[in-house]
């Protein structure tokens, strides 16, 4: 069966008829073609599909699109700002990920960047405990995490 939902994604309003079984991840990727949000496991275990719903990070692979009626969603594509002249301004967390070598294959990166952005929204001076709180459920198989942690700490410094 289908259901109609109204959602705002990256500052654009959408009215969509979705299958009641469709996940938010599926709708973002296959309907809105926002493929920056990745499916690593489909089970809420890896974090590659993290998006912000009303400002809070969630795992879009284990949420039904039907549950999202009326919600504001930000995906990785919505984290960088496009200026009026078309130039793109990356967020501090995106910049730090680049500078610190926190990206290798890049598949987990959107999830880490989304979660880290939420962390820096909450606090400009995250403790290790807070970094752990926000990132401990994100899996990266390439970096060994050290560069990611460094990037988050550096981005926090930048935003202060």
């Amino acid at each position: 069966m289908s259901v109609e939902i109204k959602i705002n994604v990256n500052n654009r309003d959408y009215r969509l008829i979705v299958d009641e079984e469709d996940t938010l991840l599926y709708v973002l990727r296959e309907r809105l073609h926002l493929t920056g949000t990745k499916e690593g496991c489909g089970n809420g275990e890896c974090g590659a599909c993290a998006v912000l719903v009303d400002g809070e990070p969630v795992r879009s692979c284990i949420i039904l699109a039907a549950e999202m009626n009326g919600k504001n969603i930000v995906t990785v594509e919505g984290l960088s700002k496009v200026e009026k002249d078309g130039t793109v301004k990356l967020s501090p967390i995106q910049e730090s990920f680049i500078e610190e070598g926190a990206i290798q294959c890049g598949f987990c990166t959107p999830g880490f960047v989304v979660a880290s952005s939420a962390l820096l929204e909450k606090t400009k001076d995250p403790t290790d405990e807070e970094i752990e709180e926000y990132l401990s459920g994100h899996l990266c198989r390439c970096t060994g995490y050290a560069t990611i942690l460094k990037a988050v700490r550096k981005a926090a410094e930048k935003t202060r």
Binding site: G44, V58, R59, I62, H138
Partner: peptide
Amino acid sequence: FGCHEIRNR
């Protein structure tokens, strides 16, 4: 419990 995104839901 789980992780931040899981705890949020």
